[in-house]
Amino acid sequence: MSESVSVRVNGKPVTVRAGATVAVAVLASGATCRTSVTGQPRSPLCGMGTCFECRVAINGEPQRRSCQVLCEANMEIEANG
């Protein structure tokens, strides 16, 4: 198993340790996760799948909770914060 994984967040390459969640990759990229219904930037609150603040699009699928998904090589992540 390799020690790190590379993904792209809003097109920008990010490398995180193997086993890291997508939320971690988004934070590491400097982006925030989503834009709230009134336009505020949001990022993870609970880290455990309950708050839904960490939603991003993963490989084109919107509304995924990034704190519950592990990074896989070459994942395309779209964060709208």
Binding site: G19, A28, P44, C46, G47
Partner: peptide, 14 residues
């Protein structure tokens, strides 16, 4: 973040 929330994120690689 949540207190446990930050901890969980760090445990997940932050």
């Amino acid at each position: 973040m949540g207190a446990g929330g930050l901890q969980a994120l760090v445990k997940s690689g932050l």
